[in-house]
């Protein structure tokens, strides 16, 4: 049970950290100054969430584990983030859509956690929920603008949807540690889908051709795409090169 809780907490923080790391690559490269600041703000929210979750995980793990050792010294196979968050940034449409799909999921997930049995996770979820609600709202606005914008932005959004949709199934497929805690993510699917679907419809993008597409899985149990290795190489470079360096 303790192990399941630890694994679960790690999966939550890995999700936030990896998506934060991905978004951070936009810093200084946003399409316009204001959006650069917005996406970087979201990055900081996510990294903040991952920090408190790692602190809790370190406490659960005991020994000499710290938030830093969990973030910087675990290997690819020990990371439990879902595959969706490690997908490449691609263009602005892909980054936006990835954020939207994930934030809508995170909103449902955190809402569920606020009522959960674990009081620490419930407190973290309550605190993070406001941030996540804003991420949903912000990315939703952009999905609408891109989908219902110019022919080019529409095409790019459709392409992003085709790229990312196969990674959404995993979100709702419970890993062992989730099921052991009685937190089956399948329960979140209906709400998530209706939020996503209504926004996509409003953005004049259809999900019809994707409803039966093959869903990739594995991230939650450490089987990642080739992308994660590159992300961790960047993320962990300093700690790996100068072990226990501090600043």
């Amino acid at each position: 049970m303790q192990q399941a809780l630890l694994d679960y907490t790690l999966s939550l923080s890995d999700n936030a950290l990896i998506l934060g790391q991905r978004n951070a690559a936009w810093c200084g490269h946003g399409p316009i100054l204001e959006q650069d600041i917005a996406i970087t703000n979201i990055t900081l929210d996510l990294i903040g969430q991952s920090r408190i979750l790692y602190q809790y995980a370190a406490q659960l793990k005991g020994g000499d584990a710290t938030e830093d050792s969990l973030a910087f010294l675990r290997s690819e196979r020990e990371y439990k983030n879902c595959l969706l968050v490690e997908r490449p940034n691609g263009d602005w449409a892909q980054t936006i859509l990835r954020q939207f799909l994930f934030s809508c999921f995170q909103r449902e997930l955190y809402t569920q956690l606020t009522q959960g049995k674990d009081s620490t996770l419930a407190a973290i979820a309550t605190k993070s929920l406001k941030e996540v609600s804003y991420h949903c709202r912000w990315s939703r606005e952009w999905v609408l603008r891109l989908g219902d914008g110019t022919a080019e932005s529409h095409t790019r959004l459709v392409k992003a949807l085709e790229n990312l949709w196969p990674y959404t199934g995993e979100l709702f497929k419970g890993a062992d540690y989730e099921l052991a805690l009685g937190l089956d993510p399948a329960m979140l699917y209906t709400n998530w889908l209706s939020a996503v679907q209504s926004t996509l419809e409003e953005a004049t993008v259809s999900l019809a051709s994707l409803t039966s597409c093959f869903m990739q899985t594995g991230g939650k149990t450490g089987i990642h795409t080739e992308e994660l290795g590159f992300i961790l190489t960047d993320l962990q470079y300093m700690q790996r090169t100068y072990p226990s360096c501090d600043w």
């Binding site: 316009i32 100054l33 204001e34 959006q35 600041i37 917005a38 703000n41 912000w138 606005e141 603008r145």
Partner: peptide
């Protein structure tokens, strides 16, 4: 001041740029 395509986006940009 800031750039935005419409009022809604201007509010959101202002939130991110000026109330951090």
């Amino acid at each position: 001041s800031l750039h935005a395509s419409d009022a809604q986006m201007a509010i959101e940009n202002a939130r991110d740029v000026y109330t951090r």
